[in-house]
């Protein structure tokens, strides 16, 4: 089993489009390839936008789950 290396944790709660995507984009440049950002957000839009951002930038969405209005997701930098 591969280990998940969370290099950065981001709090995006309360932020609306386009800020969560922009912050993830900035943060991914600051971590090593293969490492992971874990973020929490409250805007339901991120459930569509983060997968779309991953698809177009070539990064990987490791997980995404919603509980009590808070969305937690992990994005892995691939290259």
């Amino acid at each position: 089993m591969s280990t998940i290396n969370i290099e950065k944790v981001l709090d995006l709660k309360g932020l609306l489009c386009p800020i969560p995507v922009v912050k993830i984009s900035n943060a991914i440049k600051e971590i090593e390839p293969g490492n992971v950002i874990e973020a929490t957000a409250t805007d339901p839009g991120v459930m569509m936008d983060i997968p779309a951002w991953c698809a177009s930038t070539g990064n990987e969405l490791d997980s995404m789950e919603e509980a009590g209005g808070v969305i937690t997701f992990r994005v892995k930098r691939l290259k």
Partner: peptide, 11 residues
């Protein structure tokens, strides 16, 4: 501005 910043964030 929303589209431009998002597109830039999508490289």
């Amino acid at each position: 501005f929303i589209l431009a910043s998002t597109a830039a964030a999508m490289n």
